[in-house]
């Protein structure tokens, strides 16, 4: 077993892992952070998406030890000082979630996009979310949510 030290949502964590442990297992089974979901365990669906050093990754196929010393953000880490992130507000307002199973991953993928590209086109938003599957919404209201959040964030800045 190896000791994995990394930061999750701003908090330093230390857990014992072995060579096969995935980041998703660490988050769910050891730290009891259950917002990243086990949808496929093969990297195909995106429900396990988290941010690692600000970049979108699939935690189900991320070897836990490769997170050593890194900063991981799950959706629990998005709200600041009790204020929801504009993306969370926008997904709520625009019905970007139906069953909710893909939602945490979808919002984190959206955050990764807006961090890099604060004013995406609809096409760019679709491209950024292309690895996050949703079976309920048909994606329309998800893309609406991302666009609304981008606009809201731009207004808040100006």
């Amino acid at each position: 077993m190896y000791s994995l030290e990394f930061t999750v949502n701003g908090q330093l964590c230390q857990v014992a892992v072995d060579l096969k442990t995935t980041l998703l297992e660490v988050l769910r089974d050891k730290l009891f952070i259950t917002s990243p979901k086990v949808g496929c365990n093969t990297g195909d669906c995106g429900t396990c998406s988290v941010l690692m050093n600000g970049k979108l990754v699939r935690s189900c196929i991320t070897n836990a030890l490769s997170a050593q010393g890194k900063e991981v953000t799950t959706i629990e880490g998005l709200a600041e000082a009790g204020e929801l992130h504009p993306l969370q507000e926008a997904f709520h307002d625009n019905y970007g979630a139906q069953c909710g199973f893909c939602t945490p991953g979808m919002i984190l993928a959206s955050k990764a996009l807006l961090d890099e590209n604060p004013k995406p086109t609809r096409e760019e938003a679709k491209e950024a979310l292309s690895g996050n599957l949703c079976r309920c919404t048909g994606y329309g209201k998800i893309i609406d949510s991302v666009m609304a959040a981008a606009e809201q964030m731009a207004q808040a800045k100006s």
Binding site: T34, I75, E76, Q88, F91, D93, Y95, G96, A97, G100
Partner: peptide
């Protein structure tokens, strides 16, 4: 607003 929307967007 969706009844369970807040729980969905916070991962709760």
């Amino acid at each position: 607003k969706r009844y369970d929307g807040m729980a969905h967007v916070t991962g709760e």
